[in-house]
Amino acid sequence: MDSDFEHLRHKPPTVLDKPRDLIIACCPMRSNVNVSRIVRAASCCAVSKVIVCGNVKIDPKIARDGAEKIPISKHRSLAPVLRDYKKEGYTLVGLEQTTNSHDIHHFAFVRKTILVIGNERLGITEEILSLLDATVEIPVYGMPYSYNAATATCMALYEFCRQFPGG
């Protein structure tokens, strides 16, 4: 064994100078656990904001530091919010399996993106789908046909960060 080789268990994280131009927008979700996991992952990826709808409660034990560090914007309805951001030049990308969805492995994100996450059972509504610029899906190799909403969001966040490692 090489005596010069050392494992660092908790090396300091890479911290960006400012949050990314990436926003997560969640359709009304059934599970506060999923939303809390999304908030935690969004914080790890330096997302600038998380938009939530409906009666959402973020569990600080699950979201951990994310609940305190990332702005969370609560709204009654998602469509008007997305329309406003679209006017500001954001690209709206839904994480959803649709007829024209792109395989996430071959999709080029733009920096100024809102990643829209659908309801765990119902997905993204027709109203919201009509506002999107694109949809991406994550290939599934077994059953069921899709990943859990929070898990899929983590994968999509990772891919966005891979494409824009410096922010």
Rank of each mutant, 00 (worst) to 15 (best):
D2R: 15
S3L: 13
D4S: 13
E6C: 15
E6I: 15
E6K: 15
L8C: 11
P12R: 15
P13S: 09
L16C: 04
D17N: 13
D17W: 07
P19Q: 07
P19F: 03
D21W: 05
D21E: 11
I24D: 01
C27W: 04
C27L: 11
C27Q: 11
N32K: 06
V33N: 12
N34C: 06
V35D: 02
S36P: 02
R37F: 10
R37Q: 11
I38Y: 01
V39L: 00
R40W: 00
R40F: 00
S43E: 09
C44Y: 06
C44L: 09
C45I: 00
A46E: 09
A46R: 08
V47Q: 03
S48D: 06
S48K: 13
K49T: 11
G54N: 12
K57L: 04
I58K: 01
I58C: 02
P60D: 10
K61T: 07
I62K: 04
R64T: 00
G66Y: 00
A67R: 01
A67N: 00
K69M: 07
I70Q: 00
P71I: 01
S73E: 10
K74N: 05
H75A: 12
H75L: 10
R76T: 15
R83Y: 11
D84V: 08
Y85N: 11
E88M: 14
E88Q: 15
Y90F: 14
Y90K: 05
L92V: 09
V93S: 04
G94E: 03
L95N: 01
T98N: 09
T98W: 08
T99D: 14
T99I: 15
N100D: 15
N100P: 13
S101K: 05
H102T: 07
H102N: 09
D103F: 09
I104C: 08
H105G: 12
F107R: 00
A108C: 11
K112I: 09
K112E: 04
L115K: 08
V116N: 07
I117S: 03
N119V: 02
N119K: 06
R121G: 02
R121S: 05
L122V: 01
T125V: 09
E126L: 10
I128S: 08
L129K: 14
L129Q: 12
L132A: 09
V136D: 12
I138P: 02
P139W: 13
V140F: 10
G142C: 06
G142I: 05
M143F: 15
M143P: 00
P144R: 14
S146H: 08
